[in-house]
Amino acid sequence: MRGLRRGTLKFKVGPFVARIGTTYPLLQQDFLDIYEGYPLAAPEDFVHFNLKVGPVSLLRRWFRPKVIADGGFVASPFVPLPGDLAILALEMGLNWQVGTKSDQFLIFHSGVVAKDFEPSATGEVRPSRAVLMAGQSGAGKSTLTAGLAYNGWRLFSDEFALMDTSDLQLYPYPRPISLKNQSIEVMVERLGEEVFSRPYLDTPKGTIRYLKAPGDSLRNGDRPARLDLVVFPEYSPGAPAQVAEFEGAEAFAMLRGASVNCDRLGQAAFDAISDLTGRCKFFHLQYDTLDMAMRMVEDLMEEAA
């Protein structure tokens, strides 16, 4: 708590270290609740992102509180939010910095989970294998990511897939999963209240509750995985389940469309996406229930193996 107030709190999210400060008591509480269990950075770790969240003015600390994130950059798109939604300012502030200033990675806007394997009897270490879930917002990737992350898969991210273009490994970016509106109910019923934040009402995206990142995803935040499977899920109530494989140019175009920063990386991104197009399996998924979607992903991963 003291570190947070003084802005000396440094914690790790996958390959990144973020330094956070806020003097706003409500945000301190919310943050410590949602980020419980995150590894703290060691003194020898470089800090990638700095973020302060505070009231827009002294008046707005007490009277109709408004807070805003400050990463120290002139051209940042941060907008003031009501004091009660301070955690959103922090989440959006951090995501914006990662999304715009991490071009060491090829970033996809997607959910990612991975299967870890025990070392084989001969002691051979098997690499973790990841599935990337992309698609329009509202297609249900957060819900699907959340479902898998609490059911035998390791959470990498619900927001960004971070790919090292030199070896095509995916790196974890385990953040609280923001669930919206109807999906909250579905997931609370499955997982219970205790893994959720309090509800945030009347956000720009409706009601939000944060699902905490599972402990194993935080403890293994430095273990990469290889990407084998790319799915574009689509939630369509009442429709029959459908799996449609695609490949080649379509796969390239879909993957490229999911990328946040491929134009900033240029050649490195083009080569990486080309390689992935040849190596991964790509599917459109149409699903009705979460269980159905999860089973589809399990099966497809079995096949891809």
Partner: peptide
Amino acid sequence: LPQGLEGCLLSAERNGARNQV
């Protein structure tokens, strides 16, 4: 260099290269 700094520098370099193109 300290762990993590290399990535930050690579990111900056990529940004610069693209800016010049």
